[in-house]
Nucleic acid binder design. Structure first.
Lengths: 256, 256
DNA sequence: TCAAAAGTGTTTAGCTTACACCCATGT
DNA sequence: ACATGGGTGTAAGCTAAACACTTTTGA
């Protein structure tokens, strides 16, 4: 019950937080225990982290607050992607039980502004007490039934991620500061759900200028040690078009 | 005062409605007359059409309702693009005067879900009485000071349009069913704010398969009559990638 | 010595780009 | 006849795509 007197009962933000570890794209969820009077066993329900928006807070601030309370991280890639406002989105019975235990006005219609966050999951300090709830990383293909319309929100976020990763250099936000070409390619293959040619991938990434090689290499690996690279955030942001080159699977190139 | 008892005081939709006529991209605005007790002359303030969301209405429905009440049109290209929720977005004094004359709860914080509509302006039947206000088509480079944060919303919409028109075959939504290559190219040049090569443009459009030539030609023009084309909506939607080919100004092509 | 992932070039095909002249119509 | 916009083809350069072997390390 993280309430202050100034929560707007009708507007919330929810965060779809993506991370990448062990060659798998993962989603950060919170786990709620819902008292069930009939069975005396708590129901379990997973949900996207989110909260009502405070009256003096703008939407980006609200989403950043939710993210920071949960992970301890600030300055993260976090972008609004869609707003959900179906009148029945919070009407399922399990959801209502939880709302009644937490909200002052559980019947209020709530529209939610959904954000997508990309984080280096190694950086996360999960703050277990922050929402009085457990947090878990779930592989994106093992996402369980979620509260409210959160399954739909997550699916829309994943689509948005797939699209944007092909237009903008945002994949790097999911990796540590130093990463290998193998990690980077594996990340793109995971998100795009298809194999990429190693030589062509490397060439494009290097030629784009958005990453730079370090002299440092892996140590302690039982194969040829890979070189580390870093993302040139400033370069990429000042050259919004000369990123790397994408084709949907037909092609996409502007007029002349 | 189009109020019913069931308006949510905290959530609205606003529509940025683009049209194209006389080689110019235009914005559909409503004009409000605001009583000013000091001068006895009404202040004039333009605004994006919008309304509070009804309690039993989802967001898309609400935006479609606003659009239909204003233009008499249904089944229009209308897409959510961003949500605006700065706590001070409705705090300017002119805005407050208007709110006080129209809203039950003029102090309520309102977040607004912004939609972008593309319409064939020839189809519009402006319904002057619908909002008890005048509607006007304004060239996008002559947009006056607008109510609330509507100038910002409009600018974001224009950016979104520029981006999307390069990714998706949506330009056609702004043209009549039958159009000439000249009109189509002029539309793209207007939106993208740069000249395009005539021969290359025609080739790409034809090769993309999203438009088909008719045998019909212009009549009564004082130059060689142009052939008409139609947009293959079904084809374009079932071939999301084989649209036409865009390049931002560097290039954009996927991995392999 | 074996397993595992890193690293490296070349060729072909297709697309993008740049560019200039004739055509059909109404006035 | 002239003004206006419509309509057409080609050559050069670039990028994408497909493809296989050697290297380095730890076990």
């Amino acid at each position: 019950m993280s309430s202050t007197p100034s929560l707007n009962p009708h507007v919330s933000t929810d965060c779809v937080i993506f991370g990448f570890s062990q060659e798998t794209l993962r989603l950060l969820l919170i786990r709620r225990n819902i008292p069930n009077r009939l069975t005396e066993v708590n129901d379990v329900l997973y949900a996207l982290p989110g909260d009502l928006v405070k009256d003096d807070e703008n939407l980006d601030t609200s989403a950043n607050r939710v993210l920071a309370e949960l992970t301890g991280l600030k300055g993260i890639y976090l972008t609004q992607f869609q707003t959900f406002g179906d009148p029945l989105r919070i009407a399922k019975s399990k959801d209502r039980a939880w709302l009644e235990s937490v909200r002052q006005d559980p019947d209020a219609r709530v529209i939610t502004v959904a954000y997508m966050a990309l984080i280096d999951s190694q950086k996360v300090n999960l703050q277990p007490g922050s929402f009085s709830e457990e947090t878990v990383w779930v592989p994106i293909h093992e996402v369980p039934e979620l509260a409210f319309d959160h399954n739909e929100i997550y699916e829309q976020a994943l689509s948005a991620l797939k699209e944007r990763v092909q237009m903008q250099p945002i994949g790097f936000e999911l990796l540590p500061e130093k990463f290998t070409m193998g990690q980077l390619q594996s990340l793109y293959e995971t998100i795009l759900e298809r194999d990429l040619d190693k030589r062509n991938f490397r060439r494009k990434m290097i030629n784009s200028g958005v990453i730079s090689p370090l002299t440092e290499k892996q140590i302690g690996v039982s194969n040829k040690p890979a070189r580390y690279y870093v993302y040139n955030r400033e370069f990429a942001q000042s050259n919004p078009s000369s990123i790397f080159n994408l084709r949907m699977d037909g092609s996409f190139t502007l007029f002349n």
